[in-house]
Design a protein around this nucleic acid. Structure first.
Length: 849
RNA sequence: GCCGGAGUGGCGAAAUUGGUAUACGCACCAGACUCAAAAUCUGGCGAGGUCAAACUCAUGUCGGUUCGAGUCCGACCUCCGGCACCA
């Protein structure tokens, strides 16, 4: 042990030691209970950023804590190494994506090791290696077999800046999740995974995880899946056999439907207008709306006016028999429900706005319950008389102007009218979802090739499992044109048909990288398996993940895909549970001031507000950097980076180190095993603080309140510092108390600053013994108990005095003592004591008048 | 517009079931050490008030419940995040 704290020496020493002894390797033949601690795997961009450091520091703290508590901890890491940036580097600088990626991994692995995160490096995986993406392809084939992977031509989200397709999840809000460009729609042949098949379960199973996941994430997922209950209703087209099917969640308002509105892309438009003189005009309108939508990637811009055109066709309301006009308008979505709606202006904001603009009939058919009496009386109002309303009334209420249904409650009417429609064959109750199938095709090189072959004779043929992996070629032309670079590699494209043996061509699309990350943490359990993605028996030992930690930016991307993937794996017998992750922590962003502004934004290269972890480590040490980042704010809060704070962390570690230096001779030479007979009051107080701290830290760990744990450790150290015994002359009892306090402090510091903790541990008489096999301290409630309590005394709820009492003091004694307190007596003198509230062990409140 | 979440010192933040508001740290101030500075150590640090105390006021604003409210209830203000014609 050096006299002074040199983080670099200590950190190098222990990192080497851990590496050589494979200290954090997890094995299956370990009888202790397992704990799977997982952090989101990084994309190997080349450099770790502070968000990573925070993510992995949190995860490592938990891994250490569980390890010390006696769990068999699995704490792995890997690389989400397929994806855009590697290909961009290839396009811009002509480097090979594989070389670029491997170099980045090498550098970042070094950074993680310099941080001293306790990973089991023997399980490291990387998505771009054939032994991994082989299994992406295998899963694809399994889905293909079950018709869960399919190809169709459809409008897809297109990022014009990156020249690639995006899934709905990746283009949420109409912008590219990566570059922020406005997304356009394009018609392309694309591969999709049928996530909609699992829509119901994705909502339903939220119940299984709601205790362990942030409400915020679950709500976003639930909104994203967008389950809604309603009904289909068929409106017959007048003088025709055609029917227009609409979807509505408010069938109770159907007597207020004063028009039918079709999406501009609705396939029926052609038929309906076949013989109409308005045909050309309507078709021109529909084409205009469709092309505008394609250009902007969404139906309408904010505040944009609704547009529509009357087709002249009439449809019959099956409930009322009324004929209503059929319109085509720009505000109706084709890919939700049926692409057609019944327009009820009185009870839907959008329909209201539309009806006002085009002077359509607005007929009120739902009344507030409190006004219902009056309205039912006025039910004699002529049916086509418009009622002046400032807004649509969208709440539930009581039906009026609704024939036989008038007087019913909305909730009842919805059930009964759906049933009625079904019985009479013009509709049925239905559930629709907002979520769409997951488009996974990418016209990209740097991804897992979709394992499909096109044969002129046999058509689309899946690559046989035995031929996997379909390997990426070593070289390709990177033009950035938007065409898949694979299409230009003849050796790759040209193949033979597995069925008939004649010449055939390969699919040149690769898969979305979110496929790789949907199941990677299962692969960690059995990372070198060559005959299956993993052995279900081994996976059973480790999964589900006990704690997952990452940013909430993946709330509706990765985190919904991986839930889907798990359910699929369950259905093919690979796992036996519905949900892959028991507890999820979404850590806050690390932000820094953008130079020259007052804005705090996530650190990024493009904003120039990044902080290099290596510089932090060089300047302050990994231990201090990690300690600070966990201390500075609660884990779920945004963390605003302030350089000054980290020096406080260094100071703290240096003080602890110096304290140990002062004591280590005495502590390592004496085999102290008992607290000694006559312990001093100071020693008793120190031991009390020690055991109180153990209790607090242990309970805070359960809720991952890491910032308050660090505060508690600092408090314990301050107490130790104040104790101020002299190592040369201290009594055996005092030495015992110091030893206990230091050992406890170091054990509890290990999850935050493991290197210096190891160094100190070694010097507290644990020569060569690694902390990882030590045991988390136990709080002794007897020792933690206060010898004397300070009881505040209030008069009318205001603090006026305090008194000291033993913990055994009775309520009656407290009451008497409070009333006899000199200060209290003078305050209540001349007043009537109405009552005295005594909260045992806590306070006394004297109520006077 | 709709749906969430949050407002506590100069700053990051603490505060069992409602029970001593501001723990811990940063910054700052003073002192010690030093020729000096840095580092380190000691002390101070919500506002007003006082020589010092007493006391008064403070957890976004207003009101309510309670012996007692940062915490519970109601209304409002501000900020942040998500979704956005999903019928």
């Amino acid at each position: 042990m050096d006299e002074k704290y040199f983080p670099e020496n200590i950190e190098n020493k222990w990192q080497q030691h851990w590496e050589q002894t494979k200290a954090f390797q997890a094995t299956e033949d370990d009888p202790r209970p397992k704990f799977y601690c997982l952090e989101m795997l990084p994309y190997p961009s080349g450099f770790l950023h502070m968000g990573h450091v925070r993510n992995y520091s949190i995860g490592d703290a938990l891994a250490w804590y569980k390890r010390l508590q006696g769990f068999n901890v699995l704490h792995p890491i890997g690389w989400d190494s397929f994806g855009q940036p590697a290909e961009q580097a290839a396009i811009k600088r002509g480097v090979n994506p594989r070389d670029w990626t491997e170099e980045n991994i090498t550098h970042m692995r070094g950074q993680l090791k310099r941080l001293g995160i306790s990973y089991d490096w023997s399980r490291e995986i990387a998505a771009h290696r054939p032994d991994y993406y082989k299994w992406d392809q295998w899963f694809f084939l399994k889905m293909y077999e079950r018709d869960l992977a399919y190809k169709k031509k459809s409008p897809v989200n297109w990022c014009p800046r990156e020249g690639t397709v995006l899934s709905n999840e990746q283009s949420s809000g109409g912008v590219c999740w990566r570059c922020g460009a406005t997304v356009e729609k394009r018609d392309l042949e694309q591969w999709f995974l049928r996530i909609t098949e699992y829509a119901e379960q994705l909502v339903e199973d939220i119940r299984e995880i709601e205790a362990g996941w942030p409400e915020k994430v679950l709500k976003r997922q639930s909104d994203w899946v967008g389950r809604s209950e309603g009904a289909y209703v068929d409106f017959a087209v007048k003088d025709s056999d055609t029917k227009i099917r609409v979807f509505t969640t408010r069938i109770d308002t159907i007597f207020g439907a004063t028009s039918i509105v079709l999406s501009a892309e609705h396939p029926l438009i052609d038929d309906l207008l076949a013989a109409s003189p308005l045909k050309d005009e309507v078709m021109a309108f529909a084409r205009k709306v469709t092309s505008e939508k394609t250009a902007r990637g969404r139906v309408l811009e904010e505040d944009e006016q609704k547009e529509g055109i009357n087709t002249g066709v009439l449809a019959v309301n099956p409930f009322s028999g009324e004929s209503v006009p059929v319109w085509v308008a720009n505000y109706v979505l084709m890919d939700y429900g049926t692409g057609a709606v019944m327009s009820v202006p009185a009870h839907d904001e959008r329909d209201f706005e539309f009806a006002q603009k085009f002077s359509l009939t607005i007929r009120r058919v739902i009344e507030r319950i409190s006004h219902a009496q009056e309205s039912i009386v006025h039910d004699s109002l002529s049916e086509d008389q418009s009622i002046a309303m400032p807004h649509a009334f969208t709440n539930y209420g009581i039906l009026v102007n609704s024939g036989d249904w008038s007087g019913k409650l909305s909730q009842d009417a919805i059930v009964e009218m759906s049933r009625h429609a079904e019985q009479h064959g013009f509709g049925q109750a239905a559930v629709t979802f907002r979520i769409r199938d997951w488009g996974i095709s990418r016209q990209r090189f740097w991804g897992a090739p979709v394992p499909i072959i096109y044969c002129e004779k046999c058509g689309m043929v899946p690559v046989p499992e035995t031929d996997l992996p379909v390997r990426l070629p070593d070289h390709a032309e990177f033009t950035g044109s938007g065409e898949s670079p694979l299409a230009g590699v003849a050796d790759f494209v040209n193949t033979t048909c597995p069925t008939c043996g004649s010449g055939a061509k390969r699919e040149t699309d690769t898969m979305d990288t979110f496929v790789d990350s949907s199941w990677y943490f299962f692969r960690y359990c059995d990372p070198h398996n060559e005959s299956a993605p993993f052995d279900p028996e081994i996976v059973k030992q480790w999964t589900p993940v006990d704690q997952y930690i990452g940013g909430d930016s993946h709330a509706v991307m990765h985190l919904i895909y991986t839930r889907f993937w798990t359910k699929f794996m369950r259905d093919i017998g690979l796992v036996s549970f519905d949900e892959p992750v028991k507890k999820l922590l979404t850590q806050g962003m690390v932000t820094n001031r953008v130079e020259g502004t007052d804005e705090w934004k996530a650190m990024s290269k493009s904003l120039g507000n990044g902080v290099d972890p290596d510089e932090m480590i060089a300047a302050f040490g990994a231990d201090a950097a990690r300690l600070f980042i966990l201390f500075a704010a609660p884990v779920e809060n945004e963390l605003r980076w302030l350089e000054t704070g980290i020096e406080g962390a260094v100071r703290f570690l240096r003080r602890v180190y110096t304290m140990v230096w002062r004591w280590h001779e005495r502590l390592s030479n004496i085999g102290i095993t008992t607290p000694g007979e006559a312990s001093s009051p100071g020693a008793r107080a120190l031991r009390r603080k020690t055991h109180q701290t153990i209790a607090k830290v242990t309970s805070d760990f359960e809720g991952l309140h890491l910032n308050t744990i660090v505060a508690a450790l600092m408090e314990l150290f301050n107490e130790l510092s104040d104790f101020n015994a002299d190592p040369g002359t201290a009594s055996e009892g005092d030495v015992f108390a110091v030893h206990e306090a230091l050992e406890t402090l170091v054990l509890m510091l290990a999850p935050f600053s493991p290197h210096v903790a190891e160094e100190i541990w070694e010097n507290l008489g644990h020569e060569g013994g690694l902390l990882k096999s030590a045991h988390w301290p136990q709080a002794d409630p007897e020792l933690a108990r206060q010898e004397e309590l300070e009881i505040p005394i209030q008069v009318n709820g205001k603090l006026r005095s305090r008194l000291l009492a033993s913990p055994e003091v009775t309520e009656e004694e407290l009451r008497t003592a409070a009333l006899n307190d000199e200060k209290i007596r003078s305050l209540i003198d001349g007043h009537e004591v109405v009552k005295v509230i005594v909260v045992p062990q806590r306070l006394v409140n004297v109520v006077v008048r």
